[in-house]
């Protein structure tokens, strides 16, 4: 039914805002933060919020690639393994002749992008469904990692990575600044370029996109390469914060990246969504984890609370359209 012309403009703005996934998620984050600061002393302090944002920047950067892939109608289950690969191989790829560590970073990011590219080749040319291709890639990488690392932890000497994990230019942690740069880049790519429009097109209907002249294969390759790149970037941050890498270090980021994307209102079916929702989604996830840690329950209850809260939050932003 069309709205009567007399209905106030402010009413429709309100309604649009309430239907806007990113805004709802942002509102949720604010409510949770304000609520939590009443119950838990120190939760709302500047230091704690900064720490939460630092943790969220890792999830946010992994989820940037995941958002792009999901919008393009796929899913990337190999991001956790790529983070681990980055963390394990960085010390090996950082030669002694380069004290800045830039070479190591470039080499590792190239490796992560290459893994993403192979995922893309599987999805685009071998026509393997992305969920299987990336799952198989994760299994494969796990095998290679055990060969390369042999189960022992590696510590990082790379100066640039350590700087990334600890520096605070202008009082703001470097990883948050990096996340802001990623935000700007991804949002511009998605919503202001033809390439971004192609991502949405192949996610909504890849046959229609092909018939309209979109090079579906090339776009798919780009999507998965970007996802590998962002996972590698997040791996550098993880390494910078932890100062050591071990097999399995990236595993927790797989589920959280997907959850952040869906909490942000991006449709898991592809073709609709925005990174603007994933950003508060990432912050929300880290906040929930922090809250659950504060409650000080047994590991079992912590898992139940985490899953239950995600499920409840999904009701607000992750529901499919009525049929």
């Amino acid at each position: 039914m069309p709205a009567p012309a007399s209905s106030s403009a402010s009413g429709s703005v309100m309604r649009n805002l309430l239907r806007n996934g990113p805004f709802l998620t942002l509102l949720l984050v604010a409510i949770v933060w304000i609520g939590a600061s009443f119950f838990s002393r120190g939760f709302g302090t500047y230091g704690h919020l900064r720490y939460i944002l630092e943790l969220a920047s890792i999830i946010g950067i992994v989820a940037a690639g995941q958002t792009l892939v999901v919008i393009g109608g796929g899913i990337d289950l190999s991001v956790g393994a790529v983070i681990t690969v980055t963390a394990i191989t960085l010390p090996m790829l950082s030669p002694a002749w380069d004290p800045t560590g830039i070479f190591g970073i470039v080499a590792v990011l190239a490796l992560a992008s290459l893994i993403g590219l192979i995922n893309g080749i599987g999805a685009a040319f071998l026509k393997v469904p992305p969920i299987i291709m990336t799952l198989a890639m994760a299994t494969l990488l796990q095998g290679f990692l055990v060969i390369v690392a042999g189960g022992s932890a590696v510590s990082v000497e790379n100066a640039a990575v350590i700087w990334l994990g600890s520096a605070r230019p202008g009082g703001i942690p470097a990883d948050i600044l990096l996340w802001v740069a990623v935000m700007v880049g991804v949002l511009l790519l998605l919503h202001r370029t033809a390439t971004g429009a192609r991502f949405f097109a192949i996610g909504a209907n890849s046959i229609a996109a092909r018939l309209s002249g979109v090079n579906v294969e090339r776009t798919t390759l780009l999507l998965f390469t970007l996802s590998g790149f962002f996972a590698g970037l997040a791996g550098l941050l993880v390494l910078g914060m932890n100062r050591q890498g071990y097999v399995g270090i990236g595993d927790p980021y797989l589920l959280t990246s997907i959850a952040a994307v869906v909490l942000g209102g991006t449709s898991i079916l592809g073709g609709a969504g925005t990174y603007a929702g994933t950003i508060p989604g990432s912050v929300l996830l880290v906040t929930i984890t922090a809250l659950i840690t504060v409650v000080n329950a047994s590991p079992g209850w912590r898992n139940i609370m985490f899953g239950g809260l995600i499920l409840i939050l999904l009701l607000l932003s992750g529901r499919e359209k009525q049929r």
Partner: peptide
């Protein structure tokens, strides 16, 4: 509730494991 199965079972895996 019309939630995607993949994400419901993902959250469910935490609850059931818990």
């Amino acid at each position: 509730l019309r939630l995607p199965a993949i994400i419901v079972t993902l959250a469910g895996s935490f609850i059931i494991g818990g």
